[in-house]
Computed example of a mutant assay.
Amino acid sequence: MKPTVTIEYCPKCGWMMRAAYMAQELLTTFTDDIYGVTLHPSEISGRYSVFIDEDIIFDRKKESRFPEIKELKQLVRDRVNPEKNLGHSDKK
């Protein structure tokens, strides 16, 4: 079964639009590689974490920043389809 990406975001912080944008980018890039992207409003203030199935791949508090979309695509690609070429979003 294809993996599911979950973006957990703080609704009180107003981060739903950021999460929706990142979900759209991931769905466009990984159409054939993932089952879908779930947006999950967090009950914990300040949370912005990205998971693939149950494994966390990015945590805003741990990194002290938000992920760049290029970075997030690389993290997802490395887990779901390491051979996939991301074009201009690929590592240099």
Rank of each mutant, 00 (worst) to 15 (best):
K2A: 12
P3L: 09
V5F: 01
I7E: 02
I7C: 08
I7K: 03
E8Q: 10
P11F: 09
P11H: 11
K12G: 14
K12P: 03
C13L: 11
G14L: 13
G14M: 12
W15G: 02
W15E: 03
W15P: 04
M16T: 11
M16V: 13
M16P: 02
M17P: 06
R18I: 15
R18N: 15
R18D: 13
R18C: 11
A19R: 04
A19N: 07
A20Y: 11
A20R: 12
A20D: 12
Y21W: 10
Y21M: 12
Y21Q: 11
Y21S: 10
A23S: 15
Q24G: 13
E25L: 12
E25Q: 13
E25T: 13
E25R: 14
L26G: 00
L26R: 00
L26H: 02
L27W: 11
T28A: 12
T29Y: 04
T29R: 05
T29I: 08
T29L: 06
T29E: 09
T29N: 03
F30M: 06
T31S: 14
D32K: 13
D32M: 12
D32A: 13
D32Q: 14
D33W: 06
D33E: 14
D33S: 13
I34E: 01
G36T: 08
G36C: 08
G36A: 09
G36H: 06
V37N: 02
L39K: 04
L39G: 03
L39Q: 07
H40F: 10
H40G: 06
S42R: 04
S42V: 08
E43L: 10
E43F: 05
E43Y: 05
I44Y: 05
S45G: 14
G46L: 06
G46N: 07
Y48D: 04
S49L: 11
S49I: 11
V50F: 00
V50P: 00
F51G: 05
F51K: 06
F51L: 11
I52H: 01
I52D: 01
D53F: 01
D53P: 02
D53N: 11
E54C: 08
E54W: 07
E54M: 09
E54P: 01
D55G: 08
D55I: 12
I57E: 02
I57N: 02
F58N: 00
D59Y: 00
D59F: 00
R60F: 02
K61G: 03
E63L: 10
E63C: 10
S64I: 08
R65M: 03
R65H: 02
F66D: 05
F66S: 03
P67G: 01
E68V: 13
E71C: 03
E71W: 00
L72N: 05
K73Q: 14
Q74I: 03
Q74C: 00
L75D: 01
L75S: 01
L75H: 01
R77F: 05
R77Q: 09
D78S: 15
R79F: 09
R79I: 06
V80L: 07
N81F: 04
N81R: 13
N81M: 10
P82H: 06
P82Y: 02
P82C: 05
E83I: 07
K84W: 04
K84C: 06
K84A: 09
K84E: 05
N85P: 04
N85H: 09
N85W: 10
G87F: 08
G87Q: 11
G87R: 10
H88E: 14
H88G: 12
S89F: 15
D90Q: 15
D90V: 08
K91A: 15
K92I: 11
K92P: 14
